[in-house]
C-alpha cells in the first residue's frame, strides 16, 4: 500500500471519527440506538455542497450543516420521547424522510464541488509550508482533520463532565434514578440526540468538501461504520473513562478505514475485492467485533474449568 493510500485512509478515518463520536453519544452514552445518522451524514454534505455552490464561505457552511443535523436529531428525539415511538423506529423514520429532504436540498442526486473553493483552499500557505519541508502536500488534509478532532474531543470530554453532561450520561444508564433526581429525561435525550447528529452532519460536511462532491446515497451504511469504530475502540482502548472511550472511538475509526484499505488490496484467486464489497466486509467485521467478547468469555471459562480439573 502506498504512502498516499495510507494517508487517504487516515484522513477518512479522522473525518468519519466525528460521525463515530456521534454514534458513541447515542448508542453508548444515551443507550439510544439512533439510525438517523444514515440520513444526517448526507444531510450535512448536502447543506455544505449547496451553500458552497451558492457562494457561501466554506467555513460558515459548517455551522449551518451542524444546525441541520441537530434539527434532524431533534425530530428523532421528539418522535421517540413526546410521541412515544420506539427509539429505533423513530430514527428509521427520520432517516427515510431525510432521503427525500436531502434530494430537495440538493435538487439533484449529486453535486460536484470541483473548481469551488473549500476550506482546504484557505490553507494554501500551510500547504506550501508543508511542501517546503519536503513533505507531500496531501499530508495536509489529515493534519487539518486531526486538529478538528482534537478540539471536538476536548470539548466533548469536557461537556460529559459538566452537570448537564452527567445528567445525560445517567439518563442512558438509569433513567429512573435520573428522574428521581429531578432530571427531565425528555430534555436530556433531545439534547444528546441533537448533539450527536450535529457531529454526524459536521462529519458529512467536511467529508463532502474533502471529496469534492455530495451524493444523496453517500450515507448508506454510515451507522454500521460508526458502530464498528466504537466497538474497535472499546476493544483496544477500553471504556472505563470518558476520555478513554472517546479516544478509542477516534482510533477505532482510523483503524477501521485502514483495515478497509488493506482489504481492498486482497485478491483471492481471480476474485478481487472491490469497493462495492465494503458493506459486506463491514457487516462481517461488526458481527465479529460484537461476538468477540462472548467468544473470549467462553475461552476464559474453559481455562478456568481446566484449572479446576487440575485441583
Amino acid at each position: 500500500m502506498s504512502f498516499y493510500a495510507v494517508m487517504g485512509a487516515i484522513s477518512q478515518g479522522l473525518v468519519y471519527s466525528l460521525m463515530a463520536l456521534g454514534v458513541y453519544l447515542t448508542f453508548r452514552v444515551l443507550d439510544f440506538p439512533d439510525l438517523t445518522v444514515d440520513g444526517s451524514f448526507p444531510l450535512g454534505a448536502a447543506v455544505s455542497a449547496v451553500l458552497i455552490t451558492h457562494g457561501v464561505n466554506p467555513f460558515l457552511v459548517l455551522p449551518a450543516a451542524i444546525a441541520a443535523g441537530m434539527l434532524a436529531g431533534l425530530v428523532t428525539a421528539f418522535l421517540s420521547t413526546k410521541l412515544k415511538i420506539l427509539n429505533l423506529l423513530a430514527s428509521i423514520l427520520t432517516m427515510i424522510a431525510l432521503y427525500s429532504i436531502n434530494l430537495r436540498i440538493m435538487g439533484k442526486p449529486n453535486i460536484s464541488l470541483i473548481n469551488r473553493a473549500t476550506i482546504f483552499d484557505h490553507f494554501a500557505s500551510f500547504r506550501d509550508f508543508i511542501m517546503s519541508q519536503g513533505i507531500p502536500p496531501f499530508v495536509m488534509v489529515p493534519i487539518l482533520f486531526l486538529a478538528v478532532i482534537v478540539v471536538v474531543k476536548i470539548v466533548l470530554d469536557f461537556f460529559l463532565h459538566t452537570e448537564l453532561g452527567l445528567a445525560l450520561r445517567a439518563t442512558g444508564d438509569n433513567p429512573q434514578m435520573v428522574q428521581a433526581q429531578g432530571v427531565n429525561t425528555h430534555f436530556t435525550i433531545m439534547l444528546g440526540v441533537a448533539l450527536s447528529n450535529g457531529l454526524v452532519a459536521l462529519s458529512g460536511a467536511l467529508f463532502a468538501q474533502n471529496q469534492g462532491s455530495a451524493d444523496v446515497n453517500m450515507g448508506v451504511g454510515t451507522i454500521v461504520a460508526g458502530l464498528a469504530s466504537v466497538i474497535i475502540g472499546e476493544a483496544l482502548i477500553g471504556e472505563m473513562t470518558v476520555f478513554r472511550a472517546t479516544l478509542g472511538v477516534i482510533i477505532g475509526s482510523v483503524i477501521y478505514r485502514l483495515a478497509i484499505a488493506v482489504a481492498l488490496q486482497i485478491k483471492i484467486g481471480t476474485l478481487q475485492i472491490t469497493p462495492s464489497d465494503l458493506k459486506l466486509i463491514t457487516a462481517i467485521l461488526v458481527v465479529f467485533a460484537l461476538t468477540l467478547p462472548t467468544i473470549r468469555g467462553k475461552i476464559k471459562l474453559d481455562v478456568f474449568r481446566k484449572e479446576e480439573d487440575r485441583q
Binding site: F159, T162, E163, G165, L166, A167, N174, Q181
Partner: peptide, 29 residues
C-alpha cells in the same frame, strides 16, 4: 441498582443529586 448509576463514579452520582431542584449548568459537575 435503581437509585444510582452503576457506570458512573460515587462523586458523579452525588453531583447529580446535588444539582437536584435547580437548573443544571455547563460547570464541572
Amino acid at each position: 441498582m435503581m437509585g444510582t448509576s452503576g457506570s458512573m463514579t460515587i462523586e458523579e452520582n452525588f453531583s447529580i443529586a446535588l444539582a437536584r431542584g435547580r437548573r443544571r449548568t455547563l460547570a464541572f459537575g
